[in-house]
């Protein structure tokens, strides 16, 4: 018996390469090609940096508004409130990422205890 004869054994690994690795990696390798010859101070780099920043905070906005799985148990106002509390803690602690993340996460846990309790 060859391994390829058993789709339940080989299937997920072939799928991992074809629909997971390749469609993901193509952006990184395209980045390698496009970054050739660009220097750090160029305007294209500044633009790309702003695009990446907007996409990252866009991901954050979507995750807070359209909460996945267990997070959906807390109402939208509670999720936005927890994020706002995190930002306030970040500011109060002198721009501390750790303080902001900790406060926001504790707030969402408290929110879930209130909703679920």
């Amino acid at each position: 018996m060859s391994a390829s004869g058993d789709p339940s054994l080989l299937g997920p690994y072939v799928l991992l390469i074809l629909v997971g690795f390749l469609p993901n990696e193509v952006w990184r390798m395209l980045g390698v090609v496009l970054a050739r010859g660009l220097n750090e101070e160029s305007e294209i780099i500044a633009f790309a940096r702003a695009v990446a920043t907007a996409i990252v905070t866009g991901v954050v906005g979507k995750l807070v508004v359209f909460a996945p799985g267990a997070l959906a148990g807390v109402p939208l106002a509670g999720r936005i409130g927890a994020a706002a509390l995190g930002v306030a803690a970040f500011r109060l602690a002198g721009r501390s990422v750790l303080a902001g993340v900790t406060a926001a996460t504790l707030a969402i846990v408290a929110g879930m205890l209130v909703v679920g309790g």
Binding site: G31, I45, V56
Partner: peptide
Amino acid sequence: MRLLPMVVT
């Protein structure tokens, strides 16, 4: 897609 501008920067 976000990986592209990240790698470029």
